[in-house]
Simulated scan of single mutants.
Amino acid sequence: MARVYDLTVEHDHEFFAGGLLVANCLVWMEEVAAMRRLKEAITHSEMGLRIGPNPHYIASTTPKPRTEIRELKARADVTVTRGRTRDAVHLPQAQRDFLVAKYQGTRMEAQELDGEILEEIEGALWSAGLLDATRVGATPPLSRVVVAVDPAATSTDEADEMGIIVAGLGRQRIPDLNGTLRQHGYVLDDLSKRMRPIEAARAAVRAYHLHKADAIVAEVNNGGEWIGTVVRQVDPTVNYQTVSASRGKATRAEPVAALFEQRAAHIVASLPELETQLTTWVPGEDDSPDRLDAMVWALTKLQLASAGNMFAVA
């Protein structure tokens, strides 16, 4: 085993081992991906390479279907190695058994257990290619903004996430794929995660003020009535509205997917966890994609509310 030398400069640790200079965080890509700054991290890592016989850097992450990861995989100067959860000798057996039981037989098995990048999933309403084709780098001037909340019924460790998505309607009418002038929808932020009701309400209210939103819109079909009470406890001045579905999840999602197909809806920059749900959820399955559902509520409210009785507003 090679000696490891700790190089400390102003409290920042770097290690030199086996001919490699290793930064103070080995699994850096996982963290920056979560912070939606994967592209910048890759660029800066490449700039940090130094002269030597084989300059290179090592990045480790769960291979989610991110544009940047697919681009890296396709490069001739990138070597891809994979590690399977079943072969992780340093992972406690109980944890391995838990992860295998959680993902085995699901569409996420290849990604989470075998380190494979998921290709297009048959039956999914969105594809990675579609999201890339409609992606925009910056937010245009907006005429309306909503914060949509898809509340979980419980807040335990095993509960669904609280879906919180911010979306806006472009002020300018621009052509869609068919050349029709229309206002486009923009998905601005994804604040979803597992949290207690009061935390969800605070997150929604913060987003409401940060984005100068016109309303917080919450689904109340499955016990979500609590969100209005808690939101008003946090800030009674917000414009709070409720929506209740009169149709199933797939029926609600299909017209919103069609907006993307028509190039009339866009994700601004990158929202990795939301994009994973969009490209892996297949209508008819039992799981509850809360980020996806909140996005559907937001864009329906902004772009499709007059198209039919898809939901009722209270």
Rank of each mutant, 00 (worst) to 15 (best):
A17Y: 13
R206N: 14
L299D: 02
A74L: 10
S246C: 06
D189N: 13
A153D: 01
T154L: 09
G83H: 08
G115E: 02
S244C: 11
R173F: 00
A294K: 05
Q303G: 07
S143Y: 10
E225A: 15
V230M: 08
R66I: 04
A88Y: 11
L278E: 01
F98H: 09
Y57P: 03
A133Y: 01
N221Q: 09
L118C: 07
G168D: 02
T43H: 13
D293Y: 03
P55C: 06
A153S: 13
A265G: 04
R84P: 04
V231M: 08
E275L: 10
R66L: 11
R182I: 05
T237R: 08
A2Y: 15
R70N: 12
T280D: 01
L177T: 06
A201W: 01
P197L: 06
E40R: 14
I69A: 03
R252D: 02
S45K: 14
Q277P: 06
L113M: 11
M310K: 11
W126Q: 05
H56F: 14
F16D: 08
G123A: 02
V100A: 03
Q262P: 00
L125S: 02
E122S: 12
A218E: 01
K249I: 10
E158V: 05
L131E: 02
Q303D: 06
V145Y: 03
T79K: 11
S60K: 15
V220R: 13
Q95L: 14
Q183E: 10
A204L: 03
T134P: 02
R232K: 15
G163F: 04
E40K: 13
D97Y: 02
R75C: 09
S306L: 15
L210G: 08
N221V: 05
D235Q: 06
L259C: 02
L177H: 10
I198E: 08
R194W: 04
T300W: 07
A159T: 04
P140Q: 05
E275N: 07
G48L: 13
T180S: 13
D286Y: 05
S155V: 03
A76K: 13
T62C: 12
A305Y: 07
E10G: 09
V256L: 06
A138W: 12
V231Y: 00
R3M: 13
P272Y: 00
H13D: 11
R144I: 00
A204N: 04
P140N: 07
I165W: 04
